[in-house]
Amino acid sequence: MTTTWDGRTGATALRQFLHALPGVDEVGAHGRAAMLSSRSIKADAKRRAIDLAISMVDLTTLEGADTPGKVRALSNKALRPDPLDISVPSAACVCVYSDMAGIAREVVGDAVHVAAVATAFPSGRAALAVKQADTQDAVQRGADEIDMVIDRGAFLAGDYAKVFNEIVDIKQVCAGAHLKVILETGELATYDNVRRASWLAMMAGADFIKTSTGKIAPAATLPVTLVMLEAVRDWYLATGVRIGVKPAGGIRTAKDAIRYLVMVNETAGPEWLTPDLFRFGASGLLNDLLMQRQRMSTGHYSGPDYVTID
């Protein structure tokens, strides 16, 4: 489904489709998320969940102050999160601004993915040509994943066709790179909007739907992720295609990460418990996962000095 929705007829059909999706009851969604958060993951299950979570981290730095040195350090960390323990899996990906993609790629080779945030991240306020050029530049520098932002202004104005067509246009210049579509759920405000934006992105060709840029509060939350997981599950039931989900921003502890994994397991299903279909957009999270892992293997808590800062 990569055709654009052209003209008034197409735009109307798209709007009618999105507005016919079942609503989300906010109280119910919060209740479900809270119930899933109460699962108790112990012992072996916890050990495996921590390793899985490590392998799902998109290790991220998205600062104006990023330097080649910082990106090299982070890329090395993605490769070997714990330099003293080779049994720790690599992170899934290094996630940087597009101009840093080449530096990350030099360090990681083919061992981990390199994602670049393109399309006038984080606001998305630029002309389509600029966004496409940004994307092409990132791919040329070695990014094999593109994290694009949707035009939230157009979405909130009800111009779904514009948002849709832009995703299609970016996908065209991705040249095979995986496309993650950032909905910026903190700006969409309602769960009904999150559901509609999720479907819109999947219909337009997203390989992943991602909650947030990390620049807007609230970023990822459990209920928002629940609604997105329901969307990819329903999309799979309708099309047989599995789309990935990436909560990003605000997930800092191993305990949080495990709650997300439980939610994936009991909402989309165990098939989604792979870095190909679920990622965490995070920076600090990795260290807490490592500290918890050390605790489980040694039986005592280490401390922040026993994990690398980047």
């Binding site: 108790s40 993951i41 112990k42 012992a43 072996d44 299950a45 994994l261 165990p270 418990l273």
Partner: peptide, 9 residues
């Protein structure tokens, strides 16, 4: 991955 929750009595 099959995510079997360990007993948590």
């Amino acid at each position: 991955m099959n995510f079997d929750y360990a007993p948590a009595p």
